[in-house]
Nucleic acid binder design. Structure first.
Lengths: 314, 314
DNA sequence: ATTTCACTTAAGTAGAACTTATCTGAATGT
DNA sequence: ACATTCAGATAAGTTCTACTTAAGTGAAAT
């Protein structure tokens, strides 16, 4: 009846047995024989000086002492298992799990991945493309690329792209668009995934910034920005293209941005990871690589006139 | 690099070592040699495939993997230790820990304890007299005697005394108190520990119930009711005595209650324990004994006129 | 230069934990 | 009514974990 902890393997056997409400089931889970499990429980009961299970004909049920022990035991082993997973993730320098929004994943990360994989053949990348904010610990994420103006308190955070946006279209379509006024009769592609930005950085804001009055209503709406860009690439209309998602298309001429005026906001892409994790080799390598890639983008068209969306907010 | 839990003894060795930031210290805590602890840490690091400590000349420090593992490991073992303590308490049928307020402990429990000890020589009682509400699990309390009108949700609860209160004094003093009006010029003893009751059950309420108008201000105040009773026993004044605290004194004539009118409230003494714990042998024995003792009190002076304090609330 | 301190390593050992095999005793099924 | 089955208990023997003592290492303290 010691006050210290009992043998931990016996305690784990108990936890499994109580969870399964079956010695045989618990034995299966722990990959031991039922006999071994029976001994473990017995030894634990001897330590306690009191039975933990009441043996019925064809089943077992917990005694009150067992009921007192179970919840804390489950909680304890759960915490240990989660801690071990966290340590394994940190110890694992081979894999790097990154989460980013679908648009950024499709239009920025995916096309450049090959380069990273070549530069770091030892690092195995995993992607989790979702708009949902994932929890670093719970979801076992190493790095998140987030868009917005989060404060990232308690996290390591670096702004990686100074985003701006301007009307973009295929070169063919651009031939018909001589002046910004021509946009009033064009098919304008809308993207809803940045609708939560305040001030909004949408067609309305760009039209006001360009002194064109109210933007025309209507035009297809896309829940994700990359789909709007794809539609523009297919010649389906004019998109208010974000530099991050269109840099490649602008480089190879698939899209053009004929009108200089660009909008910007204080919402940017950030590289975010838990404080301290930025020094882990894979994380550092990934950050270095991203900064290298985005430095090139920052040099693109530096003379373009840029207006902050906040200055034309209604 | 298994996904399952590592050897638990090794994990415990790590937790102690990280907490002490010293292998030798941890070895001391676990009553093993430093050599054994060194092996445990090494084995854990092999399981993880990564070091957990960085060995410095004369000290150790945690690697990042170690920092990721430590908090969850501490939490996990903490939960296991607490669960084990809870199980030990339930399994222990020899001791019974009771908490009650100081007044009830002094005036009701303590004088009767000898009887319980005689009837149940195998049960070792422990008392924790405090007005603070203790947590059954955290403070390792089996039974609480609480006064008030708590809802006791999720707990086993029995009202044990239908409390009422009436002016009480020594027989000598009573000779000068022919009618309730005489109380206006008497020394009234006040007790503050039931001041939180709504409606209040104090001298003001009793005077109103007796149709005597406003109670006189002034008179000594006691933070705990048993001290007010002691003052009354010493002939120091008239106390608005609670049946539970004065039953013994009334029985042996040390106090008398010359005026029939009594006040009551819906706040009573309850026997409270965690749901299910009422079937544990010591707990059941204690409840049976208390109910037996209080049944006798309930028979005392059943014809006394009783007014609810709520009916004379201002 | 010597001592000391904290951890490591080596070799050997006690005992915990596991195995296979057999046993018990009640519910199930015909 | 009887054999079957199922869940757990027990026995005996084995493997291997966890521990011990004893010697070793290397940097810091004296």
């Amino acid at each position: 009846m010691s006050d210290r902890l009992p043998p931990l393997t016996a305690l784990r056997a108990f936890e499994a047995a109580a969870r399964h409400m079956s010695f045989a089931g618990a034995a299966g889970e722990l990959n031991v024989t039922p006999a071994a499990l029976s001994f473990q429980i017995k030894s634990l009961e001897e330590h306690l000086g009191h039975p933990l299970f009441r043996r019925l004909n064809r089943a077992v049920e917990l005694t009150e002492a067992g009921r007192a022990l179970l919840p804390g035991a489950t909680e304890g082993f759960g915490a240990l298992a989660q801690a071990w997973r966290a340590a394994r993730r940190v110890a694992d320098t081979k894999t790097l799990t990154v989460t980013a929004g679908p648009a950024f994943t499709a239009k920025w990360l995916a096309p450049r991945l090959f380069g990273f994989a070549q530069a770091h053949p030892g690092i195995e990348l995993r992607f989790s493309a979702t708009l949902r904010l994932l929890d670093f610990d719970r979801d076992e994420i190493d790095v998140a690329i987030r868009f917005g103006k989060g404060d990232d308190e308690g996290l390591f955070s670096r702004t990686i792209i100074d985003e701006w946006m301007t009307p973009m279209m295929t070169p063919e379509l651009a031939r018909k668009m001589r002046t910004p006024e021509d946009l009033k009769s064009a098919v304008l592609l809308h993207q809803d995934d940045t609708a939560w930005l305040t001030p909004p950085a949408d067609w309305g804001a760009w039209f006001r910034a360009a002194g064109l009055g109210e933007a025309p209503k209507g035009g297809p709406r896309f829940s994700q920005a990359d789909h709007a860009v794809d539609a523009a690439l297919a010649g389906g209309g004019v998109v208010l293209g974000r530099l991050s998602l269109t840099y490649g298309a602008l480089q190879d001429g698939a899209l053009v941005a004929p009108f200089p005026l660009a909008l910007t906001t204080d919402a940017h892409y950030r590289f975010v990871c838990p404080e301290g994790a930025e020094s882990r080799p894979q994380v550092a390598a990934f950050l270095d690589w991203i900064l290298e890639q985005t430095a090139e983008m920052a040099d693109y068209d530096p003379d373009r006139p840029v207006i902050d969306a906040a200055d034309v907010a209604q």
